[in-house]
Every structure is written in structure tokens, then in C-alpha cells.
Amino acid sequence: MLDSQTLEGRRGARAISAPVAVASGAAVLGLTLGARTLGLTESAALQTFTIIFSAIVIEALPFILLGALVSAAIEVYVPDRAFERVARLPLALQVPGAALGGFAFPVCECGSVPVARRLIARGMHPAAGLAFMLASPILNPIVLLSTYIAYAGRGLGWEMVAGRGLLGLILAITAGWAIGSDGATDLLKPRAEEVPSHDHGREGAGERRRAFVEHLAGDFFFMGRFIVIGAALAAAMQTLIPQSLVSGVARTPIVGSLALMAIAFVLSLCSEADAFVAVSFVQFPLGSQLAFLAFGPVVDAKLAFLYGATFRRRFVLRLVIVAVPVVLAGSLWFEAVVR
């Protein structure tokens, strides 16, 4: 379990005075209204960027809140002894068990990050925590159902559900094992503003409710800001880079899978609806569409920022190094089996 010193980080920064805060807020609002009044925001590129950026944030924020809710509940209402019991299980059981646990957590990738962070901070083995985080956006029932609905029209509903579920499970377990061998302190990035993690079991009901709200708001504000940055990056790429640049070179299974992984990274779609987009990529082989469905919920532009804020340096790079070959191999195998 992480000690409070590690997670508390530094708290020495000086506070902003009330007049400075009010003046800064007024300046930001003034600049915003000024830009609108002067017509500086009428370009087509800015209008496209704005609608995509806002749409991703509007869709992701409720999921971030849901993830923060579960994370706060784990922190405040699950006693230490429950995590001690789980930690005593052999790792060979913990990792696949945690990955399969994703089946019972019906939120997309934005919600699973704070939950996994909390599980690891409370004592779950990092490999198991990561396996849960990477599996839940693919294995959860809503995602599998939407995959079935999207592909049922082409008579491939069950094949895609089985392929996606199996590849997602293999990817989560492999990446969990490969990256989660470090200890929690080597994996998680300390957060300066976080309330230290401890057992709330002996606190009164009122105190626990207060702690629950503090953890809920803390996680929401922390993750929310990185979702905003990630959404801005995804929207900028969608606005500036024509997708035909990638899709034009994508007839062969290997190149097609790599190209659709790149598109999944750029689009940053919610895993609960990405199958409806994948099904439209008919220029690509079916295995490549599976690569899109397995890679996107694990690595995309908005997630890169969430991971960067949650885990220590090089986590995203290590995840990409593991995920690309696993997904590529899985997609080629699927293509050979289904075709």
C-alpha cells in the first residue's frame, strides 16, 4: 500500500489571493467574449475543432464522474482486510481474475483509470490492477452488446464479440504482467493534492461521507483536466489530418491493422460505441477492424494524458510496445480464422 508521505507530495505552493483569482477569472471571460465579438472564432477549422472537442468532453465527463464515484467508494467503504485477502492470492490467479472482473464494471476506459489507480494504491498487485483497467473497457457487457449489434447486420455479431473479448482479455493479462511487475510506488505517480489513502473503517458515518465526497471531487477534478487536454489533442488531429492519408494504404492485413490502430489512437472514441464506427471501415480486412476495437480502448490520445497523469514516465510507451504486437498478432489470427 502507498504511504501517505508518498501520495501527499509537496504542499508548499503559495495560495493565490482572492482579488488575483477574481481578476484572472474576469480576464479569461473577457478574452473569450472579446474573441467572439471580434469574430476571431469564425474559421471552419475552429468550428470543426470545437464541436469534436466538446462532444468528446461531454461524453467522457459523466464516465469520469462514475469512475470517481466507484474509486471513492473503494477508498472509503472497502476495508483494508479485503485488499489484504486479495493480495494473498497467487498472482497467477489475481491477474486473470482482475481482468475478468472488468466484465462486471460497465463503464468505458475513462472510468476504469481512477478505479485501477485506487485499487493499486489500496494494495492490489499492480499487475492485477492494470489487467482490470485494460480489460474493463473491452470486456464489459455494454461494450460486447454494442459490438454484437454493430456487426449483427453483417452476420458476424458473435464472431466479433468472441474475437474482441478474447483479444481484450489476452492483451489485458499480457500487458498487466509485463508492465505491472514494478511495485505500486514505481508505477503510480504521486499527486500533490490527494488526500492520503488510509483505512476509513474506524471513522464515524459522517466522517466517512465527508471523506467520500473529498475523494470523489479529487478524482473527478484530477482526471477531468487530463480528459480535456486529451480531447483537445484528438479534436486537433481530426481537424488537421485527413483520415484518407491512413486509410488509403490499408488493403493488406498487417498494414491495415497498424493503420486502424493509428486511427483508433487519433479518434479517441468511447469503447461503448466504437464498434459502430469500426463496422464502417469496410475497406479494411475484418482482422484490422478487430485491431481497432482492441487497441482503441487501451491506448488513445485522451487516454495517453490520463495515463501520463496517473502513472510514472514511460508507461504509455511501455504499453504501446506491448499492445501493438499483441493486437497485431491477434488480428492476423482472427483474420485467418474468420475469413
Binding site: R36, Q47, T48, T50, G224, V228, I229, Q238
Partner: peptide
């Protein structure tokens, strides 16, 4: 950062997908 999406929507009231998108 968290209020940026709302500020951007205030600044770009005609946001939408068109021929560029």
C-alpha cells in the same frame, strides 16, 4: 482547464461539422 470546453463553446457559438470536416 476544466471550464475550457464551456469557454470555447461561448467563443465559437456556430461550432458544427461542415465541408471541412
Amino acid at each position: 482547464l476544466l471550464i475550457t470546453p464551456m469557454l470555447v463553446l461561448v467563443a465559437v457559438p456556430d461550432a458544427g461539422l461542415g465541408s471541412l470536416a
